[in-house]
Amino acid sequence: MANVNMYPKDTIENYMQEDKELAKAILEAFSKLYIYDKYLISNKPKIELENDKAFIGLNHHVGERSIVFRFAYYLQKILDERNLYTDYNLDCEYNRNGYGPKFIDSLGKNVYPDLIIHKRGSNDNNLLVMEFKTYWNDNQEDDIKKIKAFINENNGYKYKYGIAVLIGENEVNLKLINKDKSISVDDRTYK
């Protein structure tokens, strides 16, 4: 995992003190992802030869969206089973802000977060925004900028929590982004 030692350690449970049940559900969803969908994370492409030329590159992995979808599926299922956050919606790649597109002025572009928990049609009680990267595409710089904008009280979205996720082969690195723009890290191993 790249550059994880530059941030202080914390735990997601501490970060989400007011929503510890959500923090627990997130960790359980990652556990299920690594138990039931490890193939999506750790399967490396086989290089096939066609006329003595490789035609599948080394970084021809599964798409990040497939992993985010499976994580979201487990998280939604856990929230439903525990009757948690029933007045919120969990969405992936959600690009709407009311009738218009999600737009962040500081980035100068339309955005669609990988995963959000929010109330559709309102920015009053946005709860969580998550951006995901994988170990084969681990540059999180733009994701962190996007999350900082989403949790900024002045931008209109006002998400309570923002997490940049780096999916490793056997571990998850959670960058917990605070309202003051500081970042702490929670690393979890899943075998």
Rank of each mutant, 00 (worst) to 15 (best):
residue 79 L to F: 14
residue 77 K to D: 04
residue 43 N to P: 01
residue 64 E to F: 01
residue 27 L to T: 02
residue 80 D to K: 14
residue 31 S to I: 00
residue 82 R to N: 13
residue 80 D to F: 14
residue 41 I to W: 01
residue 47 I to H: 10
residue 99 Y to S: 13
residue 29 A to C: 11
residue 61 H to S: 03
residue 90 L to M: 09
residue 101 P to G: 11
residue 81 E to S: 14
residue 57 G to L: 06
residue 89 N to D: 15
residue 42 S to W: 04
residue 62 V to Q: 05
residue 72 A to D: 01
residue 46 K to I: 10
residue 100 G to W: 07
residue 72 A to G: 15
residue 48 E to K: 08
residue 62 V to C: 07
residue 72 A to V: 04
residue 92 C to M: 12
residue 77 K to G: 06
residue 95 N to T: 07
residue 85 Y to I: 00
residue 43 N to E: 12
residue 87 D to W: 03
residue 74 Y to A: 03
residue 83 N to V: 05
residue 77 K to N: 14
residue 88 Y to M: 10
residue 53 K to G: 00
residue 66 S to Y: 07
residue 86 T to Q: 14
residue 64 E to H: 02
residue 30 F to A: 00
residue 42 S to K: 05
residue 32 K to F: 07
residue 36 Y to H: 11
residue 61 H to E: 10
residue 96 R to Y: 08
residue 63 G to L: 14
residue 87 D to I: 05
residue 45 P to H: 15
residue 65 R to S: 13
residue 61 H to C: 02
residue 74 Y to V: 07
residue 100 G to L: 13
residue 71 F to R: 02
residue 92 C to G: 13
residue 32 K to E: 06
residue 27 L to N: 09
residue 97 N to A: 13
residue 61 H to K: 11
residue 26 I to A: 09
residue 98 G to L: 11
residue 60 H to E: 12
residue 33 L to M: 06
residue 105 D to G: 07
residue 30 F to V: 01
residue 35 I to F: 06
residue 52 D to N: 14
residue 103 F to H: 12
residue 65 R to E: 08
residue 92 C to Q: 09
residue 104 I to S: 11
residue 69 F to I: 04
residue 103 F to L: 05
residue 74 Y to L: 04
residue 48 E to L: 15
residue 59 N to D: 14
residue 33 L to Q: 02
residue 65 R to A: 12
residue 68 V to E: 06
residue 27 L to R: 06
residue 57 G to C: 04
residue 42 S to L: 03
residue 85 Y to V: 01
residue 38 K to T: 00
residue 92 C to F: 03
residue 28 E to S: 10
residue 39 Y to L: 06
residue 62 V to G: 00
residue 66 S to G: 10
residue 27 L to G: 03
residue 52 D to R: 08
residue 73 Y to V: 00
residue 65 R to P: 03
residue 86 T to M: 11
residue 84 L to C: 03
residue 34 Y to M: 01
residue 86 T to A: 13
residue 30 F to R: 02
residue 60 H to A: 15
residue 40 L to K: 05
residue 71 F to K: 03
residue 62 V to L: 09
residue 27 L to K: 10
residue 51 N to D: 11
residue 28 E to N: 13
residue 75 L to N: 05
residue 69 F to W: 07
residue 47 I to P: 02
residue 36 Y to C: 00
residue 66 S to W: 04
residue 78 I to D: 03
residue 57 G to R: 14
residue 40 L to P: 01
residue 60 H to N: 15
residue 52 D to Y: 11
residue 29 A to F: 07
residue 99 Y to M: 07
residue 27 L to F: 03
residue 98 G to F: 09
residue 42 S to C: 08
residue 37 D to I: 04
residue 53 K to P: 01
residue 58 L to P: 13
residue 63 G to M: 09
residue 104 I to T: 10
residue 46 K to M: 13
residue 62 V to Y: 15
residue 64 E to M: 01
residue 58 L to R: 11
residue 75 L to M: 08
residue 104 I to C: 06
residue 40 L to M: 09
residue 35 I to T: 13
residue 48 E to I: 11
residue 81 E to M: 13
residue 41 I to Y: 01
residue 85 Y to T: 02
residue 101 P to T: 07
residue 66 S to R: 15
residue 56 I to T: 13
residue 69 F to G: 10
residue 36 Y to Q: 05
residue 83 N to R: 09
residue 28 E to L: 15
residue 69 F to P: 01
residue 103 F to T: 10
residue 85 Y to S: 02
residue 52 D to P: 00
residue 76 Q to D: 03
residue 33 L to P: 03
